[in-house]
Amino acid sequence: MAIKIPQYIIREAPTEQSFVRRYWLLITLLVLIPISFVGGLMMGNGLLSDWVGSANSLQNLNQQLENENQQLLSRNSLLDTEAKVKQQAILELQESYNTLLVQNSELQSEVNFFQNLLVSNNNAKGLRIFDIDWTQINPGQYILTLTLAQKLQKAQPIEGDLKLIVKGQLQTGEQTAAKEVVVNEKFAFKYYQMIRQTFNFEEGFYPLEVLVELTTDEKKPRSLSQTYQWLEIAENH
């Protein structure tokens, strides 16, 4: 009887992978996700802090610029006010200067008047017509100024009647006729007197000459008359 030799088959036992090897990807993801989240959160907080800091810096800069702008506006307003005040002051000074010039001219005219009055007084013997002048106010309207005087030494009050006769021509259409405008006044003075009379000539009247007649009311009446050419009166002044 033959002896059977047992036959054995040697097989390699299957090796089982460890848990870590089997699930390393999952474990890696589970580890990386929190780390990434924490890192992202920390980075986000850093970026947020930087953004907040930048925003605060920009806000502070904006506030500073607004303050500087307000200061500039206030300064410009002050400079504008100063310019207006200076301009008004210059205008007022100019007006005051012009007023002083006019006053100086008037004072000079008065000084000249009194100087001429004193100079002409040396040859004066009594009542006289010292000066005559006219000024046009409006078309056809004139102011005639007559200055009467007498000898200043031992002068006594004097009074009388004054007659002003303006002779001229009145043109109506193609016709021209002679016309007189007569004004009666009173005078009374000791050294001198200025008499102003307004004339309102009708349209078409052209004055040519002025006749001045003076008559005193003294015990011994005295009359004085003198004729002046209208245009020569203006030329002499």
Score class of each variant (00 low, 15 high):
residue 137 I to V: 03
residue 125 K to H: 05
residue 84 K to F: 11
residue 86 K to L: 11
residue 89 A to D: 08
residue 120 S to N: 07
residue 86 K to A: 13
residue 78 L to F: 13
residue 91 L to C: 13
residue 126 G to V: 04
residue 129 I to G: 02
residue 86 K to Y: 09
residue 83 A to H: 02
residue 82 E to I: 07
residue 127 L to R: 01
residue 102 V to S: 07
residue 112 N to F: 11
residue 122 N to P: 07
residue 137 I to L: 09
residue 102 V to L: 04
residue 141 Q to P: 05
residue 112 N to I: 06
residue 85 V to S: 11
residue 119 V to C: 13
residue 80 D to A: 14
residue 94 Q to F: 00
residue 94 Q to V: 02
residue 88 Q to E: 08
residue 108 Q to D: 04
residue 118 L to K: 13
residue 119 V to H: 14
residue 99 T to E: 10
residue 89 A to P: 02
residue 126 G to M: 03
residue 117 L to T: 04
residue 88 Q to L: 10
residue 87 Q to F: 09
residue 94 Q to S: 08
residue 105 S to P: 05
residue 103 Q to F: 14
residue 89 A to L: 06
residue 81 T to I: 05
residue 87 Q to L: 11
residue 118 L to V: 06
residue 108 Q to Y: 03
residue 95 E to Y: 12
residue 111 V to Q: 09
residue 122 N to Y: 15
residue 87 Q to E: 12
residue 84 K to N: 14
residue 121 N to M: 00
residue 78 L to V: 12
residue 119 V to N: 14
residue 135 T to F: 12
residue 110 E to K: 06
residue 98 N to R: 15
residue 81 T to N: 01
residue 96 S to T: 05
residue 79 L to Q: 04
residue 103 Q to K: 11
residue 108 Q to A: 10
residue 115 Q to G: 06
residue 87 Q to M: 09
residue 87 Q to R: 11
residue 111 V to C: 04
residue 118 L to D: 14
residue 114 F to N: 04
residue 92 E to N: 07
residue 104 N to V: 08
residue 94 Q to N: 14
residue 99 T to Y: 11
residue 89 A to G: 10
residue 90 I to C: 05
residue 84 K to I: 12
residue 84 K to H: 10
residue 131 D to T: 01
residue 111 V to G: 04
residue 136 Q to N: 02
residue 117 L to S: 00
residue 101 L to R: 03
residue 83 A to L: 10
residue 89 A to W: 06
residue 122 N to T: 04
residue 82 E to T: 10
residue 136 Q to S: 02
residue 129 I to M: 01
residue 110 E to R: 05
residue 112 N to G: 05
residue 79 L to D: 02
residue 106 E to C: 08
residue 133 D to H: 14
residue 99 T to S: 12
residue 125 K to S: 11
residue 95 E to C: 08
residue 113 F to E: 01
residue 104 N to R: 05
residue 101 L to K: 06
residue 97 Y to K: 12
residue 91 L to D: 08
residue 122 N to V: 09
residue 102 V to Q: 04
residue 105 S to A: 11
residue 86 K to W: 07
residue 91 L to W: 07
residue 82 E to S: 12
residue 97 Y to S: 15
residue 110 E to D: 09
residue 137 I to S: 10
residue 99 T to L: 12
residue 93 L to I: 14
